[in-house]
Design a binder for these strands. Sequence first.
DNA 1: GCTTTCTTACTCGGATACCTACTGTCCGAGTGGAATAGG
DNA 2: CCTATTCCACTCGGACAGTAGGTATCCGAGTAAGAAAGC
Lengths: 158, 158
Amino acid sequence: MRLGEGVEWTLHCCLTLGWLETDEPVSTAKLAATFDLPPAYLNKRLQTLVRAGVLSSTPGARGGFRLARPPEKITLMEIVAATEGAEYAFRCTEIRQKGAGAERPAHEFQRQCVITTAMRKAELAWRRELASQTLADMLAAAPVAAAERTRDWFDRVG
Amino acid sequence: MRLGEGVEWTLHCCLTLGWLETDEPVSTAKLAATFDLPPAYLNKRLQTLVRAGVLSSTPGARGGFRLARPPEKITLMEIVAATEGAEYAFRCTEIRQKGAGAERPAHEFQRQCVITTAMRKAELAWRRELASQTLADMLAAAPVAAAERTRDWFDRVG
DNA sequence: GCTTTCTTACTCGGATACCTACTGTCCGAGTGGAATAGG
DNA sequence: CCTATTCCACTCGGACAGTAGGTATCCGAGTAAGAAAGC
């Protein structure tokens, strides 16, 4: 099991957008340069965040991305689910109904199997933890110097 | 993010081995037939459980797999980690040190970034949940009829 | 000076190629139990 | 009846092919802002 790199990218981009505190949109090119990422692909990932309502994008000259909501109202869960998909990591394919189970009547399988229940319980704990942390929490947790340095860097590159 | 199908397979196989309560090993062929799975590949997954110490295998005629320990001492976390790998799902590639961060001295990056901390915290909650559930818990949670039916089926196919 | 046009810079969305990890198959080697052959 | 050989069923482990999903690139279309041109 592994999370795509896109999760790390989008989380860092959201953090950066939160630090900048500017109301002007930030272009994909600048964000990509900040972390040395492929611009076209990063843009694709950010677009999915727009569709999820986490970011908003403005087209045209001097366009780019900005946070769609104040950081206090953006949870990590939203960002992760937007880039990685909202499906469960464990996907029950009902193999209990194959082979030996094929001869049994269908009504015996209405209750979900104990394995699915257990795995889902663990995954909900994961989600709950992510949902409890907002972008504002992370902005506050990072050293203030980090925020200043990113602001400086964005001032310099224009 | 998705867990491989192998997780579902090995969990069901462990559950089946627990239900059978026999001391004789069960062959890969029978387990594969029980869930209609490809025998060779299932065998591969079960071998990793042997290496992890969850199952034990006996070679030769009438050989097969059996639980290496009583079900009370096997946690779901062990089974999942054995088949899926013990690495974290979120893998920090330190993109904060690329691009804008490349000019900054290395000692600034000794503390792990807030994103890694947050993601790891969520993942630990997931692991804790899986580690708290034993195979014996699942055996008990399932309807007794299910256990009987699998025993019947294994008696019939010999 | 005002309006119109042009240029520029950016997002948007689809099409496509690549690459990695998971899935699945195959084969040779090793091992233990049972059947068979020989004394 | 006892022992040795043969055979079979199974695990073990590696090599390899196929496949799905994530990564990455490219291109045309649309849009907004500013600059340039025309009246």
